Computed example of a mutant assay.
Amino acid sequence: MRKTRSSLYVLAAAVAAVGGLVACSPLTAINALSPAGSTDTSTDIAYGIGARLKLDVYRPARPAAGAPVVVFFYGGNWNSGQRKDYAFVGRALASRGIVAVIPDYRLYPQVRYPDFLDDSAQAVAWVAQHIGAYGGDANSLFVMGHSAGAYNAAMVALDSRWLGKQASSPAILAGWIGLAGPYDFLPIENAAAKPVFHFPNTPLESQPVNHLDGKKLPALLIAANKDTLVNPVRNTGGLATRLRERGVPVTEIYYDGVSHTTLVGSIAAPLRGLAPTLDAIDQFVHKNASLSKVQAM
Rank of each mutant, 00 (worst) to 15 (best):
M1N: 04
R2W: 07
K3M: 15
K3R: 14
T4R: 13
T4Y: 11
S6C: 11
S6Y: 04
L8A: 09
L8T: 12
V10K: 10
V10Q: 10
V10H: 05
L11K: 00
A13Y: 08
A17S: 13
G19T: 13
G20N: 10
V22P: 05
I30A: 08
N31W: 08
T39V: 12
T39I: 07
T43G: 06
T43C: 05
G48N: 11
I49P: 06
K54P: 01
D56C: 07
A61C: 12
A67S: 14
P68W: 01
V69W: 00
V70Q: 02
V71L: 03
F73M: 06
G75M: 01
G75V: 00
G75Y: 00
G76F: 03
G76E: 11
N79G: 06
A92D: 01
L93K: 05
S95G: 15
G97L: 07
I98H: 00
V101N: 00
V101Y: 01
D104M: 10
R106L: 08
P109E: 10
P109Y: 10
Q110L: 14
R112A: 10
R112N: 11
Q122K: 15
A123G: 12
A125G: 10
V127M: 08
A128F: 07
I131A: 04
G132V: 10
Y134D: 04
A138D: 09
N139D: 14
N139R: 14
F142W: 06
F142S: 02
V143E: 00
M144G: 02
G145S: 13
A150D: 02
M155W: 08
D159A: 05
S160E: 15
R161A: 10
K165D: 13
A167K: 12
P170C: 12
W176L: 02
W176I: 04
A180K: 02
F185I: 08
L186Y: 07
I188H: 08
T202E: 08
L204R: 13
E205Q: 12
E205M: 09
P208H: 03
D213P: 05
K215S: 10
K215G: 04
L217N: 00
L221G: 01
A223P: 03
N225Q: 12
T228E: 15
P232Q: 03
P232V: 01
P232R: 00
V233C: 07
N235C: 08
G238V: 04
A240C: 13
L243A: 07
G247A: 11
T251V: 14
V258R: 02
V258K: 02
S259Y: 07
H260T: 03
H260F: 06
I267K: 02
I267S: 03
I267V: 12
A268F: 04
R272I: 07
R272L: 06
R272A: 10
L274V: 05
A275D: 05
L278S: 07
D279Q: 12
F284I: 02
A289R: 01
S290Y: 11
S290M: 11
K293F: 04
K293C: 07
V294T: 11
Q295V: 09
M297W: 15
